[in-house]
């Protein structure tokens, strides 16, 4: 920041690059991201009230108790979907791509992921899908994705 390239005058507008190295810690959510590298999808079960979360969280949002890690079933169903033809700048090279909310049998809440589907096929609510894992870990939530079962 600070060194500008002149874009226009009257008014004077300068453009600079706003770029930072940023350290994002997954902190207490780290076990989830580590497990993806071993082909395991973790959710959480509350030690106290038993609520089963489809998205990993270390503490229960209903009763505040600590949760246990649980292994989520790899098979689920599409709860909702959207295909994106535009995106944020970071994912511009990825469009079009499909996002889904996944429901798992016996689990009380959902999980958001990408669905890879053959062109010509259309995602639908209730579609059976199955988790796949990236061979080379990126250490992001993209290390798991879904395909039609």
């Amino acid at each position: 920041m600070g060194y500008g390239r002149l874009l226009k005058i009257d008014p004077v507008v300068v453009e600079w690059n706003y770029n930072i190295e940023y350290r994002h810690s997954y902190a207490e959510d780290s076990p989830f991201f580590m497990a993806l590298g071993r082909g395991r999808l973790l959710g959480s079960k509350c030690k106290s009230c038993g609520f089963k979360y489809g998205t990993y969280r270390k503490y229960c949002m209903y009763c505040g108790s600590e949760t246990d890690d649980i292994e989520l079933p790899l098979h689920g169903k599409v709860h909702s979907f959207t295909t994106c033809y535009y995106s944020g700048e970071t994912f511009r090279g990825d469009v079009p791509y499909t996002l889904v909310l996944v429901e798992f049998p016996g689990v009380d809440s959902l999980f958001m992921s990408r669905l890879f589907i053959n062109s010509g096929e259309k995602p639908e609510i209730g579609m059976d899908i199955v988790a796949q894992f990236k061979k080379f870990q990126t250490f992001t939530v993209n290390d798991v994705y879904f395909v039609p079962a």
């Binding site: 994002h24 994106c84 996002l99 958001m112 992921s113 993209n142």
Partner: peptide
């Protein structure tokens, strides 16, 4: 920023899911 945004999540997509 850990679970949603890195998927290519952005607001039009979230409202579209809804």
């Amino acid at each position: 920023a850990s679970f949603d945004y890195p998927l290519g999540g952005f607001y039009t997509a979230y409202y579209a899911l809804m």
